[in-house]
Design a protein around this nucleic acid. Structure first.
Lengths: 193, 193, 193, 193
DNA sequence: GATGAATGAGGATTCATTCAT
DNA sequence: AATGAATGAATCCTCATTCAT
C-alpha cells in the first residue's frame, strides 16, 4: 500500500534520529550535542529533525523513554519466564536484571540516571502497557499486610537502587557492584518485611 | 595595612560574584545563565569574572561547595548543642536538620541536588575541617559491631536520603515530607541496626 | 462536462489560496507570512501553491490587483447609478466611494497602500475592462480646456488622495477623515478648475 | 583623555555600521540585506552590530533619520542664506532644494520613500533642533489669515510632494521632474493662497 | 493534478573569551 | 587589579523549493 510505505519511511527517519541522538548524548552529553550533530550523524537533513522533534530536550526525553521502557519490559519478561512465585524473590530478580543490564551498558545507565526528570519518570512507571507501580503495590500488600504505606516503600526502593547503583557500577563506590549487591538486596528485603 | 585592604577588596568582589551566581543559578538554572549575567548582577566588569573563576562550572562548584559545607556545619553544630549521646538519635537529628533546611530553602535543595557531581560530593564529605564520613564510620562501628561494611551502609543512607527527600519536599511524592519522614527515619534505623 | 468540472475545481483551489493570502497578509504582513502558512490556511497542500503562483510576491500582486479592481469597479458603477452629469461632482463621488470603502475596511487600505508598486499601479489604472486614466483625461479636457497637462493633474490627484487618506483614516492625521474630506475635496476642485 | 578616546572609537564603529547599512539598503533593499552583510561590509565583527543596534529595522530607522535630518537642515540653511522674505517663495525654495537633492541622489529618495514610517516621519518633522511643522504653520498663518486649517494644508503639501516626486524622478511619470516641477509648484501656491 | 516529506541554504542571535586601556 | 568593547565561532531555527508517490 502507498500510505504504509510513506509511513514506513517516516518511521525509519525518526528511528535514525533517535539512534543518532542516543549515540551522541551518550558519547558527549546533552549539552555538548547540537541538533546539527544529531542530523548529520543520522545522515538526514537539518530541517528533517524539526519534522519529528521540537528540540533537543524533546528527543532526549523520547530516547530515554524508549530505552527505559525496553529495559523494564525485558526485566519483567525475564522474571515471568523464571516463574518465581515468591514476591520478594521476584522483585530482587527484576532489580538484578536491570542492574546487570546497566553493568553491560554503562552508557545507558549514565543517560537514564542523568536525565530522568520527574515527569518522565512517572510516565514510565505508569505507562499504558505495564503499570509497574500499581502491580508492585498490589503484590506487596498480599505479601506483607503489615506494611502501612506501600507507596512509600516502593519509592524508597526505586530511589535507593537508582542512586546507589550508579556510583557503584561506574566508580566502585562504596564497593564494586558485585560486592555491593548483597548489601543492597539485603536492604531491600528488610524494607518489604 | 595596604596589602590587607587590597585582599579585602578582592574578597568582596569574589563574594559578590558567588552570591550573584547563586541567585541566578537558582533562579534560571545553570544553562540559562551566562557569565555576562553573573558579572552584571554582581555589578562587576565582565573581565573581572575571569580573575576569580575559570568558567561557569568552576563558580558553580564553588557556590555549591560553600553552601553545602555551611549546611553540614550547622547541622553538626546543632546536634552537638543538643548533646545527644545515642548514635542513631544523633544521626537522625543531623539528617532532620538538613531536611528541615531544605524545606525552608527549596532553591538550595534544587541547586545541590541537580548539580552535585561525584567529585564535588566526595570532596564535601571529606573536607579538611570535618571528615563526615570517617566520623560516621567510626561511630557506627562502636554502635553496632555486627555491621560488616559500614561504608556501604553510609552510602546507602546518604543516597536514600538525598534522592527521596528531593521529590518529597518539592512534589509531595510519595508523600508530603512531614508524613514521609517517619518512614525514612524508620528505614535508616533499620539500616544501622 | 468533465473538463469544466476540473477547471472549476482548479478555480476553487486558486480562490482559496487568494483568500488565504489576503487574510494572512492583512493580519501579519507579507514578511511574516510564509508560503506554508498560506497553503495551510487554505487547507491545501504546500506543493499545490506552486501550481498556481510563482512565489509570495506573485500571489500578493494578484491579491491586491483583484481587490483593487473590485473596488474601482464598484466606485464607478455607483457613480453611474447616480447619473451625475457634472464632471467634477462625478469625480468627487468616485473618490468619496473609495475613501468610504477604506474607512469600513482598514485592512484593505493598509494592504493596498503598503504594497502598491508602480508596475501594479499602472496596470490597475489601465486594465482591459476600464481604462480609468484615459477616461478621466478625456472628460477633464471637455470639462476644462484650459488645463495644459491633464496627465499631471490626474497623477497629482491620485497621489494626493492616496497618501493623505491613509494617515487620516488610520491615524487621524492631520484630521479625522470626516473632517479632512472637505479640505481634500476642496483641493481637488481647485486642481481641475 | 582616555575616556574620550574609547568613546571616539565607539563612535567610529557605529558610523561605519550606519554607512554600511545605508550602502547596502540602497543597493539591495532591506529584505535582501542580512546583518551579516552589514557587519562584513563595515569590516566589523558580527557581534559588534548587536552592541549598537537591536536589529535590521533599528539601524534602518536610524539611517533614514540621520539622512533625512541632514537633508532638511541643508535645505533650510540654503533658504536662510538666500534671505527670501516672501513666505511662499521661501517654501518653494526649500522644496526645490530637497527635490534637487533627490534628483542627484536617487538612492536616498528610494530609501526614504520606501521606509518612512509614520512614527519616524513625525519625529523628523518635530525634532529637538528644528520644529519644521510648527514653524511652517506660524508662518503660514501670518502669510494668509484666511486659511482655516493650516495643519491640513501642511500635510497635503508634504504628501503631495513626497508621493509625486518619487515617480517623477525615478520613472518620469507623469512627466520628467523638470517638466513636472512647474505644475507641482503651481499647485502648492494654490494651496496656500 | 495534488500532496507533503525532505532538504539545506541562509539568517538571527548569543556568548565565552581576549586584550587594550 | 579592573574594565568592557570587540570578536566570530557556534547554534538554533525557518522556509522556499523540489520531487517521489
Amino acid at each position: 500500500m502507498n500510505i504504509s510505505k510513506v509511513e514506513e519511511k517516516k518511521q525509519i527517519k525518526r528511528d535514525r534520529l533517535l539512534a543518532s541522538a542516543y549515540a551522541l548524548f551518550v558519547q558527549r552529553g546533552l549539552n555538548e550535542t547540537s541538533i546539527n550533530d544529531i542530523a548529520e550523524y543520522a545522515d538526514v537533513g537539518k530541517g528533517t529533525f524539526y519534522l519529528y522533534f521540537k528540540d533537543k530536550w524533546d528527543i532526549n526525553n523520547q530516547v530515554i523513554a524508549e530505552k527505559a521502557r525496553l529495559l523494564f519490559d525485558e526485566a519483567i519478561i525475564n522474571a515471568d519466564e523464571k516463574r518465581i512465585d515468591n514476591f520478594s524473590d521476584r522483585l530482587i530478580c527484576i532489580i538484578d536484571y536491570i542492574i546487570n543490564s546497566f553493568i553491560e551498558n554503562n552508557d545507558l545507565l549514565r543517560l537514564i540516571n542523568k536525565n530522568l526528570s520527574l515527569g518522565l519518570y512517572n510516565r514510565l512507571l505508569s505507562n499504558e502497557y505495564i503499570n509497574i507501580k500499581d502491580t508492585f503495590i498490589t503484590e506487596l500488600k498480599n505479601y506483607n499486610s503489615n506494611i502501612t504505606n506501600p507507596d512509600a516503600v516502593f519509592y524508597m526502593i526505586i530511589e535507593l537502587v537508582g542512586s546507589t547503583t550508579y556510583n557503584s557500577i561506574l566508580n566502585d563506590i562504596p564497593l564494586q557492584i558485585d560486592e555491593f549487591k548483597p548489601y543492597l538486596f539485603d536492604q531491600i528485603r528488610k524494607m518489604i518485611n
